[in-house]
């Protein structure tokens, strides 16, 4: 075979095998074609054997041509193989039989307690407003829980909060509010100061859907020069906007707490109904009572060595359970302490 014939033969082989590749209906057919073309005794191998009969010059021309042919054929086989195997895979996938409507596997997730969620939200908002977190004891001396807060012994105001006493330790009580933290903080720090004190408080109350002997409060205190009722209103407005959204507004009503003067009860404008009845949140009044607050009583400041003629402050306090009940639609305060997994798991 001379070079010209060899070249023609090559063209024939290429055409023949490309035809076979194209015709292969499945991977088996393709494999036989590959053996026939590229196998040890295949057509291409036979052709390449002829190279040894050529002169050096001819080899220089025929060699690259042979390699080229081999590459072309291999590429053709590979491409077809990919196409056939993909087609087979797709055919297999289409035959998949799985019930997609079976339930998904549960993810192992834990849950924060709803009170934690409510408290986190409140502390986050107050932090933005510059309140520092202050902590204090739950078993407390009467002087911090009462006397320093202008609630002297044998004053009816002391009966406003039924108190638990520690056995065998006169003068020790479970704090009835977190205001003990205010006193302790002011004793140690000088104005200007701005703190929040969240935490548990204890009152010997009858237990019902809205009263619990153990509950949480959060209080705020700001003492500086010229702190007024208007400042209180502005900060509480901001606090309530943080909790209920930009529409929130506050309203003051006069009230009495021994450690503030003037004392106010703070209502928040209903963000759910704009005063339309029936509204479960505000009962159609348009307002919801939310906090107690006021200007820190001058005697309280004097008790901790702050001159009320120089400094003034405001203080406010609210119940965490009350807020959590509203925000999370929990109807009974006892639910917070029953720890029913079916309820906790919702949050």
């Amino acid at each position: 075979m001379n070079l010209t014939e060899w070249k023609q033969k090559c063209a024939v082989v290429e055409a023949e095998y490309k035809k076979q590749v194209a015709a292969a209906a499945d991977l088996d057919a393709l494999a036989s074609a590959r053996v026939a073309g590229l196998g040890r005794k295949g057509a291409l191998t036979e052709l390449l054997k002829n190279l040894k009969d050529f002169s050096i010059e001819e080899k220089k021309e025929a060699g690259p041509l042979g390699n080229e042919l081999k590459k072309n054929l291999e590429a053709a086989f590979d491409a077809k193989e990919l196409s056939l195997s993909s087609a087979k895979l797709n055919a297999d996938l289409v035959n998949t039989n799985i019930d997609l409507t079976l339930p998904g596997a549960p993810v192992s997730v834990g849950h924060s307690h709803p009170l934690t969620i409510a408290l986190d939200r409140m502390t986050a908002v107050l932090s933005k407003l510059g309140f520092l977190w202050a902590d204090g004891p739950q078993v407390e001396e009467e002087k911090y829980n009462f006397d320093y807060l202008n609630i002297p012994a044998h004053h009816p105001a002391r009966d406003m909060q039924d108190t638990f006493f520690i056995a065998g330790k006169p003068g020790m009580v479970l704090r009835t509010h977190t205001s003990n933290v205010q006193v302790r903080y002011m004793e140690k720090n000088k104005p200007p100061l701005r703190i929040m004190s969240p935490g548990r408080v204890f009152r010997k109350d009858d237990i019902d859907a809205s009263h619990s002997p153990v509950f949480n409060q959060i209080e705020g205190l700001y003492v500086d020069k010229n702190v007024s009722l208007a400042d209180l209103k502005s900060d509480l407005t901001a606090f309530m906007k943080g909790l209920f959204g930009a529409k929130a507004e506050v309203r003051f009503r006069p009230s009495y707490f021994p450690f503030v003067e003037p004392g106010v009860e703070v209502d928040v404008k209903c963000v759910f109904c704009d005063g339309a009845s029936p509204c479960a949140f505000c009962k159609g009044t348009g307002w919801k009572e939310m906090l107690g607050a006021g200007i820190v009583h001058p005697q309280v400041l004097r008790n901790v060595g702050i001159d009320p003629e120089v400094y003034s402050g405001y203080a406010f306090g609210m119940g965490v359970e009350r807020l959590a009940m509203m925000l999370l639609n929990i109807k009974d305060i006892r639910a917070f302490y029953e720890n029913d997994l079916r309820i906790l798991g919702q949050f």
């Binding site: 100061l193 500086d224 208007a230 400042d231 502005s234 901001a238 003051f252 006069p254 003037p262 004392g263």
Partner: peptide
Amino acid sequence: AEEAARFNGFENIPVSSTRASVAF
């Protein structure tokens, strides 16, 4: 001051501009 606020109407107490944080 409380009496003045009560009889003048607590609803008339204005909202001042919130003051900045005092410390960290």
